[in-house]
Amino acid sequence: MLSVNKTEAMQLNQWQSNEYPKIGDFNSDNLKIDNKFKDINTQLSDRTKSLKAMAWFGD
C-alpha cells in the first residue's frame, strides 16, 4: 500500500503506523534513489570533463 505521506524532495514513501508497505513500494523507492544517483553521477562526470577541457585549453 502506498503511503499517504511522501518525502519532499523525491516523493519517497513515509508510512504511518496504520499503513502496510508492499515490496513494490520499496522497489519503487529504490528505483527513484538509484535514478537520482545516476543523474548526479552523470552531471559530475560531465562537469569534470568540462573542467579538464578548460584546464587543457587554458580557459
Rank of each mutant, 00 (worst) to 15 (best):
L12S: 03
W56R: 14
N27G: 02
K22C: 02
E19Q: 15
K36P: 01
A53C: 12
S28E: 15
G24H: 11
S28P: 02
S3I: 11
I23W: 10
P21E: 10
N35A: 12
I40N: 01
T7G: 00
Q14M: 12
V4Q: 08
N5C: 02
M1Q: 01
D39K: 13
I23N: 02
N27Q: 13
I23H: 09
L51M: 08
Y20V: 14
W15N: 00
K6D: 00
K6N: 02
L12W: 09
M1G: 00
D39W: 10
T42R: 09
A9T: 09
I23M: 05
K52T: 11
L44W: 04
R47S: 13
S45L: 07
D39L: 08
M1T: 07
N41I: 13
E19A: 10
K32L: 05
G58Q: 06
S3C: 02
S17Q: 13
K6H: 04
T48R: 03
K6R: 07
G24R: 12
F57C: 02
I33G: 01
T48Q: 04
M1A: 01
D25R: 11
M54N: 12
D39C: 04
N30R: 12
A53T: 15
M10A: 04
K52I: 13
D29P: 06
N30E: 04
D34F: 07
F26N: 03
Q14K: 11
L44K: 06
N27D: 12
N35T: 15
Y20R: 06
N18C: 11
W56A: 08
N41Y: 09
I23V: 09
S50C: 07
A55V: 09
G24W: 11
G58R: 09
Q43A: 15
K38G: 00
L51R: 07
S17H: 08
K22W: 04
T42A: 05
M54P: 00
D29F: 10
R47N: 09
K36F: 13
K38N: 01
N30L: 13
L44D: 03
E8H: 02
Q16C: 08
L2N: 07
M1H: 05
Q11M: 07
G58L: 07
G58P: 06
T7K: 05
K36A: 08
A55S: 10
F37Y: 14
N18S: 10
A53F: 15
S28C: 13
K22Y: 07
P21S: 15
I33A: 02
S28Q: 15
K6M: 01
A55E: 09
K22F: 05
I23F: 04
S28D: 15
Q43M: 14
T42F: 09
A9E: 06
K32D: 00
K38S: 03
